[in-house]
Design a protein around this nucleic acid. Structure first.
Length: 258
DNA sequence: ATGGTCGCGCAGCGA
């Protein structure tokens, strides 16, 4: 089983790249973020033609999260309360796919320290942690993945000094990220790749991708029973190249059968 | 190529 996550930065613009990528890499489940679509505009038919069901939660213009699955898709929850968009927008969708509970999230960016947006980011993380405690169980098989907008350690940025005083690396943000691990989640990519300097996002500007100036802010976290079955993890930098790429690369993890 | 983001939506903001 292959589970992947990708911040597509507009599923409308990225649909050709996404469909091409599904064909090429064949994930069983794909978590997406920043679809920037309303539910009415979600590309259900193209996905179905490719063999995937799609659960989408979005209000258009900003945010928007989705789960595509070819191994079943049910028990869909929208937002922390399971009913619709949260105060921070459409940033959370959960569904059960092939026996695994899948959660696709898009954490708030935070913009800058000492702003209300940064405080709201920390609050969102606290609400996510509360949802885990309230509605999930670390002894079950669960994947929490997406654009978490946190680089967990200094190994996850190209130059720690460049990020001092900015978001994504602040102690409070990293504390929130590690709180997810403390609950019972394992960083699936790090299990297979301890080396520093592996990134999932590069700013469109100034040729940062080609200069290797990025951050690892997209993650696939999973409960222990699932992590024990994982056999490989990769970031697909090829998908960041070429025509009309997202500014994020997809990340996938492969599992042995249960 | 001597510069250099993109998406949304149509000005300027958010990332």
């Amino acid at each position: 089983m292959r589970i992947a996550t990708w911040n597509v930065n507009s599923l409308k613009v990225r649909l050709p790249r996404v469909m091409e990528w599904l064909e090429l890499r064949g994930p069983d489940v794909l978590l997406m973020q920043e679809t920037k679509l309303t539910d009415e505009a979600a590309p259900l038919l193209p996905m179905r033609m490719a063999g995937y069901e799609l659960a989408h939660h979005g209000e258009g213009r900003w945010n928007g999260v989705a789960i595509a699955s070819r191994v079943g898709l049910d028990q869909i929850s929208l937002g922390f309360e399971g009913q619709g968009p949260d105060a921070e927008g459409a940033r959370f969708i959960a569904a059960s796919c092939g026996g695994v509970r899948i959660v696709s999230v898009y954490a708030p960016n935070g913009r800058a320290l000492e702003t209300p947006f940064y405080t709201a980011k920390l609050d969102w993380y606290d609400r996510l942690a509360a949802w885990l405690v309230r509605a999930a169980d670390p002894s079950t098989e669960l994947v929490l993945g997406g654009d978490l907008n946190v680089a967990p350690t200094d190994d996850d940025v190209y130059d720690p000094a460049a990020y001092v005083g900015t978001t994504h690396t602040s102690p409070a943000e990293r504390e929130r990220f590690h709180g997810l691990l403390d609950w019972g989640l394992i960083d699936g990519y790090r299990k297979h790749h301890p080396e520093p300097g592996r990134f999932t996002w590069w700013d469109y500007r100034a040729g940062n991708f080609h200069k290797g100036l990025g951050m690892r802010i997209d993650h696939l976290l999973m409960t222990r029973s699932l992590a024990e079955r994982s056999i490989a993890a990769e970031i697909d930098r090829e998908a960041r190249k070429g025509k009309l790429p997202s500014d994020h690369a997809p990340l996938w993890i492969d599992f042995d059968p249960a």
